[in-house]
């Protein structure tokens, strides 16, 4: 499909419609608790290692760069503060969401896409099940609830990674690094740091489901949908991040 303003608007419309349908069917029986829990396990536990590694190395490299820049102003002591703020406000939520877009968004799109091209989605409908309820809602709920949890884990690992670098490579005092990091954060960061992953999680899942359920053209189509899901979700995450930051900073 060529990319024109018309198709872009159509795309936004379809994604919104799917989100609205999913939202309303989430409140009607049956609830598919088992599918929701299975998805939570897949998204949450399954992505933990990737997210922890991302967090750790991001925190470590951030500490290097921050200490390096701050040393020019003789303010190396503020490293902890800068690292904590950057991690909790920006890098933690965004990088975790991007990793999840790559791991979970692609998984959702390819699974639903394969089910669609092999008529399994039609079979499900023919057996009297609403695919939005059975397939889409559990994935959205699982990703939306798990991403904040994963972000917290990534943030914590980031601070730990920074601590390791600060202590062993920059010879900073661990206590002052941690104190400084703690001081840098305000309560509003808790809100902001969790609002972002909530929005990103919903975005990844909805885009993944939308791309998967729109698949056409067999196996090749599944590949196309998967790529599209990751690309669209990643771009949306980056764009939404700007607006969310603006909103959050306004209330801080």
């Amino acid at each position: 499909m060529p990319f024109t303003p018309r198709t872009a608007v159509k795309e936004v419309q379809d994604i919104t419609l799917l989100a609205v349908r999913a939202f309303f069917s989430a409140f009607r029986r049956p609830y598919y608790m088992r599918d929701i829990l299975a998805q939570m396990d897949l998204v949450g536990v399954g992505s933990l290692l990737v997210v922890l590694l991302t967090g750790f190395f991001t925190g470590a490299v951030l500490t290097f760069q921050s200490a390096n820049s701050l040393s020019r102003f003789g303010a190396t002591g503020l490293t902890g503060r800068l690292v904590a703020i950057s991690l909790v406000r920006e890098l933690g939520p965004v990088l975790t969401a991007l990793m999840i877009a790559g791991r979970v968004g692609s998984g959702i799109a390819s699974e639903l896409g394969s089910m669609l091209v092999t008529e399994q989605v039609n079979a499900m409908r023919a057996l009297g099940t609403d695919p939005v309820k059975k397939l889409v809602v559990p994935r959205i709920l699982a990703t939306t609830t798990m991403l904040p949890v994963l972000t917290i884990a990534a943030d914590a690992m980031g601070v730990l990674g920074g601590l390791v670098v600060a202590r062993y490579l920059l010879q900073l005092s661990p206590a002052s690094y941690l104190n400084n990091a703690w001081d840098g954060l305000v309560y509003m960061d808790l809100f902001g740091g969790l609002l972002k992953p909530l929005v990103f999680g919903a975005t990844v899942a909805i885009v993944g489901c939308h791309c998967g359920l729109r698949t056409h053209g067999g196996t090749q189509g599944v590949g196309r949908s998967t790529t599209q899901a990751v690309v669209t979700a990643s771009i949306l995450i980056i764009v939404f991040n700007l607006f969310l930051t603006k909103i959050i900073l306004q209330y801080t």
Binding site: S25, R28, T118, E119, Q120, N122, A123, M124, R125, A126, L127, G128, T129, D130
Partner: peptide, 23 residues
């Protein structure tokens, strides 16, 4: 509407050409 169809579909059965089993 799609949300009202399951009730009717539950009284029908369909065998798909490629079986369409949940793999």
């Amino acid at each position: 509407r799609e949300r009202d169809l399951p009730e009717i579909r539950q009284r029908m059965g369909m065998v798909f050409q490629e079986s369409a089993l949940f793999d």
